[in-house]
Simulated assay, not measured.
Amino acid sequence: MIRNLKLQHLRYFVAVYEERSITAASQRVHATQSGVSMQLRDFEGFLGLRLFDRTSTGVFPTKAGEQIYQRAHRVLRDIDEFTVDVATHADQLYGTVRAGIMPTFAKSILAPTLIKFMEKNPFVDVNIIEGYSETLTGKVARGDLDFAVVPGGELPVGIRSQHVDTDIEILVHKRRQSGPSTDPVQLAVSPPLNLILPGPGNARRAKIDRYLSNICSSKHSILELDSMMATFDLLDKGDYASILPGCLCLPSIEDPRMVLSPLLEPLLQVDYLLIESSSKATPPVVSAFANALCDEIRKWCSFGRDTYLNT
């Protein structure tokens, strides 16, 4: 009977649908595989419908499962929004924000955002995790983070996104001769370079690879490194170059030892996306911090475009 349904049935069903795996879904909802399987069977029994086809490679929704997912997704979000409405305090924000940021923002954008936000909202706890897009997207999908800001790319089922701003990719290397640090360099005709690039789990990598493959005449050597601190250390101490987002590079623009050159002809850019779980409502405290962070990102992106492109 429908009256015997529990919210747990809906949450487990949505987790299995989005993960396409009972094992992954059980990890996401912090339950055992047998418990998730039992709740799923109960749910199908209550409805009198088969919601998934089980195979050796995973579980796949039936047509009935596709339709029920749309309903269950809306129900869970409505319940989340109801909970948020009840918990909202009119005078002062309170609660906890769990946000994920790229290393791009840790150096230049995070500190001013936190200082201004915490001065205005002293009763809010903010937990920040730094990571690359693949890691942060997974944490948002599992509910470990309220939101994250990542480079534009393919997103899994269950994630909604909104565009924040567009940044310019910059070729960075140690200065070898005098000259303006923002003079454009045509990477397309550059001699071979020792390039430090992020690994394939970074959403920026595919776009950079296409640029190097389709535009550049030279065969560059690639060192994969998913550490911004180590990248800057190598740029300072070795014969390396890197392609980095403009926001990350702006604090170094006055460094006389470094050359920062926007990639032009054609221009290489990176879009920043705010990602959240599509089945959860956004609490006011989370929305407030996300807005503050995105405002700071937009300010730096605008400053970067003016600085690098002299517009």
Rank of each mutant, 00 (worst) to 15 (best):
L5E: 01
F13N: 00
A15W: 00
Y17D: 04
E18S: 05
R20H: 10
S21P: 03
I22S: 02
A24Y: 00
S26F: 01
S26T: 05
S26G: 08
S26R: 02
H30A: 10
H30N: 13
A31I: 04
A31K: 11
V36I: 14
S37N: 07
M38L: 13
Q39F: 00
L40W: 02
L40E: 01
R41N: 08
R41H: 09
F43M: 03
L49S: 02
L49F: 02
L51F: 07
F52S: 01
V59L: 02
V59P: 00
Q67C: 04
Q67I: 10
H73A: 08
V75P: 02
I79D: 01
I79L: 13
D80G: 06
D80C: 06
D80F: 07
E81N: 15
E81L: 14
F82V: 07
V84S: 07
V84N: 07
V86S: 06
T88G: 01
A90T: 08
R98T: 03
A99L: 07
G100L: 05
G100W: 00
I101S: 01
P103V: 04
S108H: 06
I109Q: 01
P112S: 09
I115A: 15
K120L: 09
P122S: 09
V126R: 04
G131S: 12
Y132A: 01
S133A: 15
E134P: 01
T135D: 14
K139A: 11
G143F: 03
V149A: 06
P151L: 08
G152E: 05
G153L: 11
H163F: 13
D165Q: 11
I170T: 06
K174F: 06
R175D: 07
R176G: 15
S178E: 11
S178D: 13
T182A: 12
V185R: 10
L187D: 08
A188G: 15
V189R: 12
S190V: 12
S190D: 10
P191M: 09
P192C: 11
P192F: 11
L193T: 07
L197T: 05
R205P: 07
A206N: 10
A206V: 14
K207V: 09
L212H: 04
K219G: 06
L223C: 10
S227H: 09
M228P: 00
L235S: 04
A241F: 02
I243Y: 00
C249Y: 04
C249D: 04
E254K: 10
D255H: 08
V259E: 02
L263D: 01
L264M: 14
E265R: 14
L267G: 03
Q269G: 03
D271Q: 11
L273N: 05
L274K: 07
S277P: 06
S277H: 12
S279K: 08
S279A: 12
S279Y: 11
K280R: 15
K280E: 12
T282P: 05
P284D: 13
P284I: 09
A288V: 11
A292G: 11
L293K: 12
C294H: 05
D295L: 15
E296F: 08
I297E: 03
G304Y: 04
L309G: 04
N310E: 13
N310M: 13
